[in-house]
Computed example of a mutant assay.
Amino acid sequence: MTMPTSTTGATPAAQPTQPTAAAAGTAGSVAAGTGSAVELAGVSRWYGNVVAVNDISMTLGAGVTGLLGPNGAGKTTLLHMMAGFLAPSRGSVTVDGEPTWRNPGVYRKLGLVSEREAVHGFLTAYEFVLASARLHGLPDPAAAARRAIELVEMTSAQDRRIGTYSKGMRQRTRVAAALVHDPAVLLLDEPFNGMDPRQRMHMMTLLHSLGDAGRTILFSSHILEEVEQVSGTVQVMVAGRLAASGDFRTIRRLMTNRPHVFAVQSSDDRALAVALVRHDSVTGVDLVKGGGLTVRAGDYGSFTRALPRIALTEGIRVHRLLPSDESLESVFSYLVEA
């Protein structure tokens, strides 16, 4: 099988063991004057004989995209190239057609929250965000700082020194500093680290609203639940390569080398099981204690088309049909194992 296409149809280097994913795209078209396109074309980065990022091509537009991968997959290296901190060893990284490397002007439209903390504990949150606003040359840095702090719900603690904050509060302060100049592109490396459940939910809501407003947002994570809740669109990195790209449910359905698992409930589970095992698309059926069936199918489309016909022929009413292995956790496990 071939490597999946990126969000705009660009095809990275082939890997026969990986699925082909549809070009699902990002969460909408770029809004006028707000969103920007980030494009990577054949990007690689190596350190001596160690290849950290290997021939990645993708285009990101307005909306929220999750960059998913295990620790050591190359996510941080990729983000640093997007932010202009690292030069690609090969290929190009651009924002609206402008290279990010050695181009300070790109920071007018780009905000970054790195994984490594770089905050001075003797400053207050307001002072830290205000310094960022001044560095960007904003016409009213004080007002911009107050708006950004309010956006991340840090107003009540803005005059306390950062050294007294919890990790989650420091993270939110850093996000405020990255948002103070209202960037069209926001890059976040493990942004939910240290946040409590309430802070995490608020940050997820904030990212959704920024994406809906036309911002281009890419955030990395190795925690599947975070990516699943914030964005259905994913870029999956494994061992420095782009393993899959697009909506993770679509990616799963295109994995024709993996059996698909369905949970089925009907008016007569036993009779339905007998009828299903005779169909070519079905590789196995198990009766579930307490009711229902677990059906393993070799072909997603063939099975879902056949089930209504089989049920109608047998006089059985299907109450429930649910793919039980289309979670991001399942998709990620399949990709890593491949």
Rank of each mutant, 00 (worst) to 15 (best):
T2I: 05
T2A: 08
P4C: 05
S6I: 13
S6N: 08
T7W: 09
T7M: 11
T8C: 15
G9F: 11
T11P: 11
A13G: 07
T17K: 13
P19M: 02
T20A: 12
A23H: 10
G28I: 01
V30A: 14
A32M: 09
T34I: 15
G35V: 02
A37P: 08
A37H: 12
E39K: 05
A41R: 09
A41E: 14
G42Q: 12
G61R: 01
G63N: 07
G63Q: 04
G69E: 10
N71P: 00
A73M: 07
G74S: 03
L78E: 04
G84C: 03
R90I: 02
V93E: 01
T94D: 04
V95M: 03
T100R: 01
W101F: 01
R102Y: 02
P104Y: 01
V106Y: 00
R108Y: 02
K109G: 09
G111W: 00
A118L: 10
H120R: 06
F122T: 12
T124A: 09
Y126L: 13
L130T: 04
L130S: 11
L135W: 09
L135Q: 13
L138D: 13
A142I: 10
A142S: 08
R146L: 12
L151N: 12
E153M: 07
E153V: 06
E153I: 03
T155E: 15
S156D: 15
A157R: 10
Q158W: 11
I162K: 04
Q171R: 15
A177N: 03
P183A: 03
P191K: 07
M195V: 08
M195C: 05
Q199D: 06
M201S: 14
M201G: 10
H202Y: 14
L206T: 11
L207W: 13
L207M: 14
G211S: 06
D212S: 14
G214I: 05
T216E: 04
S220A: 15
L224G: 07
L224K: 03
E225Y: 11
V230D: 12
S231E: 04
S231D: 02
V234K: 11
Q235K: 08
G240E: 00
G246Y: 04
R249P: 06
T250I: 13
L254W: 14
D269A: 12
R270C: 01
R270N: 07
L276K: 05
V277Q: 13
V288D: 14
G290R: 00
G290F: 02
A297Q: 01
D299N: 06
F303D: 01
P308K: 06
G315L: 13
L321T: 01
L322I: 12
S324W: 01
L328N: 03
S330M: 00
F332W: 02
Y334I: 02
V336K: 03
E337P: 05
